[in-house]
């Protein structure tokens, strides 16, 4: 029992190490690539543009529901003026980075894992190697760089639209004075908070995209089944590992930042 625990702990550490090396190798490979900008544009399209609508939608609804929930809690304390602080801080510090990362994992990460898995099964990754093209640098590198660029941007978009959603329910619907709401948003959120949110977004971005790419890329080694089932297993594992990792590392980063 304890041995099993120890073994799974070692597995996790081993996997994390391999994923880090995988990510570093991909970045190093990307540096040696030709036409880097063109590849980066495609990767930003995949991770940024394609995730924009879902981030916008989820951000809006998160803000709306936060405005509603927190208003009814705060009004019991007679402190509905503090709605702006509550909505703004909870979104910028926690919900923005975490939900954005989970949405991107769902939209782009799972697709990336299965695409790479299929490319592995179809020998496209081997084909790149026989053409003297570094497969990691070609397939994974641009996506990692795109993650570094896109995650903070998507998080900022989520934050702003979420705060606006809180304004819609809090002020327009429930009648908190709009000046009070925005004043509280601006005065409560400091640069320290915003920076913390961006640090989280960066860590989540690098982590989730590395995990998803690693899982898909190594479908032949990691999945317990060959073929189609292996690809679906890779995609599932990629999403599970990414999501759990986001929440676990969120706790760690938060305790460092406070």
């Amino acid at each position: 029992m304890i041995r099993a625990l120890g073994r799974s702990a070692l597995t996790v550490v081993h996997e994390l190490g391999e994923i880090s090396l995988f990510g570093l190798g991909a970045l190093r490979g990307f540096v040696g690539q030709r036409r880097r900008l063109a590849k980066l544009v495609v990767a930003i399209h995949e991770i940024g543009v394609r995730c924009f609508p879902i981030v916008l939608t989820v951000g809006m609804f998160t803000g709306l529901v936060m405005g509603l929930q927190l208003y009814y809690t705060l009004v019991q304390l007679g402190a509905e003026a503090a709605l702006g602080d509550a909505v703004g801080l909870s979104i910028v510090l926690e919900l923005g980075p975490v939900l954005t990362a989970l949405m991107v994992v769902g939209q782009a990460g799972s697709a990336m894992a299965s695409e790479l898995g299929i490319q592995r099964n179809d020998e496209q990754i081997d084909a790149l190697q026989t053409m003297s093209i570094d497969p990691k640098g070609y397939l994974v590198g641009p996506r990692l760089v795109a993650a570094v660029i896109c995650f903070p941007m998507l998080t900022a978009i989520f934050d702003l639209i979420g705060i606006f959603g809180g304004y819609l329910t809090g002020s327009v619907l429930l009648g908190v004075d709009s000046g009070v709401y925005w004043h509280h948003v601006e005065s409560s959120i400091t640069w320290h908070d915003v920076r913390g949110g961006f640090i989280k977004a960066l860590v989540f971005g690098i982590y989730t995209i590395s995990v998803c790419a690693y899982r898909g890329f190594n479908t032949h080694r990691k999945a317990s089944f060959p073929g189609v089932r292996g690809v679906s297993e890779s995609a599932t594992r990629a999403v599970v590992w990414s999501s759990v990792g986001v929440l676990a590392s969120d706790y760690l980063i938060t305790s460092f930042l406070i």
């Binding site: 543009v49 703004g88 903070p152 941007m153 948003v185 601006e186 959120i189 640069w191 915003v194």
Partner: peptide, 28 residues
């Protein structure tokens, strides 16, 4: 079309980052 969309996204994203940092986060 992809390049155009990516350009728009980067502009909107950068705008959001800067607005959040300077206006809301009052970064100096």
């Amino acid at each position: 079309k992809i390049e155009f969309l990516v350009g728009c996204f980067v502009l909107v994203g950068l705008g959001a980052v800067l607005y959040l940092a300077i206006q809301v986060g009052s970064a100096r």
